[in-house]
Design a protein around this nucleic acid. Structure first.
Length: 435
RNA sequence: GGCCCCAUCGUCUAUCGGCUAGGACAUGAGCUUUUCAUGCUUGUAAGAGGAGUUCGACUCUCCUUGGGGCUGCCA
């Protein structure tokens, strides 16, 4: 019984497309689930785009998502000699022939063509798409070596899969047609044909392949925007697969345990940034409190506060955060007195008749408070409202103190700011904005 | 044009012939006697169309329609 071996074989272009990385995720999960090996092959035959930097980006994306691979990285360019040897073999056995051809851009030269069978049916059982077949006559001979002598994808891909002893090829839908060709190469070489699983595409709202025009299409962009790798991983996994019950947020262990290629969907899936955002929030809530506090400290620059203060803030902020990158702006009022005032908020809550009097009254009352803590402050304002809504007090305070209409609990916010800052900001608001 | 594939709420999906068609995101309403980017309750919302098989079809078959992929000296 030979072990299961799968590979992720991207061509490094400097960016890793989400559809591509989903294929990597499925390969990885399949390998981990079955106890097989997950291999990384860099198809770097396009010398112009395959720079060391581009390969580095690939590695970083893999690592960010926790896609660790077994065995050494396999570089396609290092196997060119083998590719060409195999072509000689095909030439000798009559499975390939040389031919004069004119390319699209008008260059004429001699290429090596693979000779397709002229009759019969080529078929295979795709693990996700089911039985697929095609008449041999519907597939034309195709080039495997360019006129400059370099091997083409089809031959390189197959030879590498043979050399890496790949047993299952899990890749994008766009390779289905190639598969019929590749199977013929495997057979011509007397090699065993691997099993295939073709993944549907990730599409945009128009049902077209998801591209950079539709939003963030590359892994790096999600990283920059402050998405958690676990959230992207989980979301991409759900785009075409589910555990068979209502669970959606899954631990890595559950994913490995439950993943089955047979259950992967055949249909294309539309990418929904909103659901990803929701999932990111779910993962942010799962961050251990201590770790979240450290992340918060890194994003929000406030000096001279103790651990207790940070714990309190983190506790307030964590459940309301969907993107770590938002922390800096959502907490801006804590880091500087020169924070931005939302004009709409000012207009709605401060620039109204009577607000000035309210604020001045509050300043007077607040300045008498000795124990500057949220519950006491809340009691005070509650007393003012006399059982009616606290809106007339709460809204102006919030805007005066933070410049926004939204954020953490108001009284918690005041406690965190401290008495002095609260009073001075109420004063500024009364002078500058209120009527 | 030719070949191949696909089709359940707006979106991701459950259903492997018995369905009052379930869940999640989004969205509407309400509650949490302050904010919401938290939490809870709740509403709207789906089987493309047509034949057939069957006691019974979202589930099986065929056709139509619609969508996608491929058709390179790209991968």
């Amino acid at each position: 019984m030979s072990e299961i071996r799968v590979r992720f074989a991207p061509s490094p272009t400097g960016k890793v497309h989400i559809g591509n990385i989903r294929a990597a995720i499925y390969n990885w999960l399949f390998a981990r689930h079955t106890g097989g090996k997950f291999l990384l092959r860099v198809e770097d035959t396009d010398l112009e785009r395959s720079t060391p930097e581009a390969i580095q980006v690939l590695f970083e994306c893999m690592e960010w998502l926790g896609l660790d691979y077994d065995e050494e990285v396999f570089y396609q360019t290092k196997n060119v000699k083998r590719h060409l040897e195999v072509v000689e073999q095909l030439l000798a056995s009559g499975h390939a022939y040389k031919c004069e051809k004119t390319s699209r851009d008008g260059k004429t030269g001699t290429v090596v063509m693979f000779k397709m069978p002229k009759e019969g049916v080529i078929e295979f059982d795709d693990i996700v798409k089911g039985h697929l077949s095609k008449k041999a006559e519907d597939i034309q001979d195709f080039a495997i070596v360019r006129s400059d002598g370099s091997p083409i994808f089809h031959i390189a891909n197959v030879v590498d899969d043979i050399d890496q002893r790949v047993t299952h090829i899990i890749r994008g839908d766009d390779h289905v047609e190639n598969t019929f060709k590749h199977i013929c190469i495997f057979k011509a070489l007397g090699a065993s044909v691997p099993k295939y699983g073709h993944l549907s595409m990730i599409v945009n709202q128009q049902g077209k392949p998801y591209s950079k025009r539709d939003g963030a299409a590359f892994v790096g962009e999600y990283r920059e925007q402050g998405y958690l790798p676990e959230a992207l991983f989980n979301y991409l996994l759900l785009l075409g697969w589910n555990p068979g019950d209502d669970r959606e947020v899954l631990t890595r262990e559950e994913m490995i345990d439950l993943f089955e290629l047979e259950k992967v969907h055949v249909t294309a899936a539309m990418f929904d940034p909103k659901k990803l955002a929701w999932m990111n929030g779910e993962y942010i809530k799962k961050i251990p409190a201590d770790k979240f506090k450290e992340l918060l400290k890194a994003k929000v620059n406030v000096q001279g506060q103790g651990e207790e203060w940070w714990d309190y803030l983190a506790n307030q902020v964590q459940p309301r955060t969907k993107f770590l990158n938002d922390l800096k702006t959502s907490c801006a009022y804590l880091t500087t007195d020169d924070f931005e005032m939302d004009p709409k908020a000012v207009e709605k809550r401060l620039a109204k008749d009577g607000v000035k009097a309210t604020l001045l009254d509050l300043i007077e009352r607040f300045s008498k408070v000795e124990k500057w803590e949220a519950p006491a402050l809340e009691e005070l304002v509650k007393g003012l409202s006399q059982g009616n809504g606290m809106g007339p007090w709460v809204h102006p305070i919030r805007v005066a103190v933070s410049g926004k209409t939204e954020g953490i609990g108001l009284f918690e916010m005041l406690q965190l700011l401290g008495k002095e800052k609260t009073l001075s900001r109420l004063g500024v608001a009364a002078e500058k904005y209120a009527k």
